[in-house]
Amino acid sequence: MEADFVPGSGQAFEEKLIPSMTGFGALCQAHLSREEAETVCGWTVLVPLSLDEEIWLPINSGYTDSTMVAGAPQVLAIAEKVAAAVDLPAETPAMCDNLDLTTWFMDGAAKELAAVRPEPWGDDLDTAFYVALFLRAAQHSIRRDCPIVCT
């Protein structure tokens, strides 16, 4: 950990892909074009640059036989669409550090908020987790001017 690290500063970004992505895939299918869904769900490397199109590399990524490099500005625009579709709450951690989203969604804070304020995002917390994950990853990449690798 960096010596000048301050929790909540958004200097680090790591999350665990624990929940099922089934609901997120259905949400993307309902609100995005096929190309947009492939971009937001399929990147392996997210770079803070605007790209005219994704870059496909013939390098095994651990999940697939190739690696997709996507531009964070493009992913952010797509992620904002699905965040609006579920009305992601302002309380969702924004300046994420290691496991902030995972902890918020899996350890009960999100469930508690959804219980007192029923809104579309709270209907499926696994889906809301992935909405927040892709949104915050793109924001982090742009804010910190750094790539993010999904491993």
Rank of each mutant, 00 (worst) to 15 (best):
M1W: 07
M1S: 07
M1T: 02
M1F: 04
A3C: 00
F5W: 15
F5N: 12
V6I: 14
P7G: 07
S9K: 12
A12P: 00
F13Y: 12
E15Q: 13
L17D: 00
S20T: 14
M21I: 07
G23C: 04
G25K: 13
A26H: 06
A26V: 04
L27D: 03
C28V: 10
Q29L: 08
H31Y: 03
H31S: 02
H31W: 04
L32Y: 01
S33L: 11
S33I: 03
R34A: 12
E36I: 04
E36S: 03
A37G: 05
T39G: 07
T39C: 11
G42I: 07
W43Q: 08
T44E: 06
T44S: 12
L46V: 10
P48S: 13
P48L: 11
L49V: 05
L51Q: 02
L51E: 01
D52R: 15
E54G: 10
E54M: 13
I55S: 01
W56Q: 02
P58I: 01
I59S: 02
N60M: 03
S61L: 02
G62T: 01
T64I: 00
T64L: 02
T67D: 02
T67Q: 05
M68P: 00
M68G: 00
M68S: 00
M68W: 00
P73L: 14
A77R: 09
A79Q: 08
A79E: 06
E80A: 12
K81G: 05
K81V: 09
A83G: 03
A85Q: 09
L88S: 07
A90Y: 14
A90K: 15
P93H: 11
M95V: 05
D97G: 14
L99Y: 15
T102A: 14
T103M: 13
W104F: 14
F105E: 02
F105W: 01
F105N: 01
D107S: 11
D107Y: 11
G108P: 07
G108A: 11
K111F: 11
K111R: 15
K111N: 12
K111G: 06
L113M: 06
A114G: 07
A115Y: 05
A115F: 07
A115E: 12
R117T: 04
P118G: 05
P118F: 07
P120D: 10
P120K: 13
W121M: 04
W121I: 05
L125K: 05
D126R: 15
F129N: 06
Y130R: 14
A137N: 12
H140L: 03
R143E: 04
R144G: 01
D145C: 03
D145G: 00
C146D: 00
P147T: 01
V149Q: 13
T151P: 02
